[in-house]
């Protein structure tokens, strides 16, 4: 009984973390983190501005459906 409860908890925790990762990706937080890692920068007003500059044109080319 205990082990199945534990299994349910593990599955729920995994589902929650996947949801969070998905939301971070959809909302470009993960893209910003990757940018910081690639550029070797810490999060700041300037680095976010640099990220937006690099990211904007690529993002603006992506169509959104009707």
């Amino acid at each position: 009984m205990n082990s199945s409860l534990k299994q349910v908890r593990v599955v729920a925790a995994k589902a929650l973390s996947t949801l969070l990762v998905t939301l971070r990706e959809v909302f470009d937080e993960a893209a910003y983190a990757r940018f910081l890692a690639r550029a070797g920068m810490a999060s700041s007003s300037e680095s976010y501005a640099a990220f937006r500059r690099e990211f904007e044109e690529a993002k603006m080319r992506r169509p959104k459906c009707c």
Partner: peptide
């Protein structure tokens, strides 16, 4: 996003 908490979109 730009000044207070950069990148914290959610």
């Amino acid at each position: 996003l730009r000044r207070i908490r950069p990148g914290k979109v959610l």
